[in-house]
């Protein structure tokens, strides 16, 4: 699943550590999310959505399998 987390984080001038603290997760989780190696849980996705003040669909880009 593609995400815009890195792009949005940089736009808001946040460090990975800062974003991690704001979300209540570790920096490693933020790194994994940005590298698209980890798919956030629904709860975390909602937290990210509220933090960036954007709908989930504009942050996480779901690609349907054909």
């Amino acid at each position: 699943m593609k995400t815009r987390i890195q792009e949005l984080r940089k736009q808001r001038g946040l460090s990975q550590e800062g974003l991690a603290e704001a979300l209540g997760v570790t920096r490693q989780t933020v790194i994994s999310l940005e590298k698209e190696k980890y798919v956030a849980s629904l709860e975390l996705a909602f937290k990210i959505s509220r933090l960036f003040e954007l709908p989930i669909e504009e942050i996480f880009l779901y690609k349907e399998e054909k």
Partner: peptide
């Protein structure tokens, strides 16, 4: 505590 509750961990 953040580390222990982190969903990825």
């Amino acid at each position: 505590i953040t580390r222990s509750k982190d969903e990825r961990n």
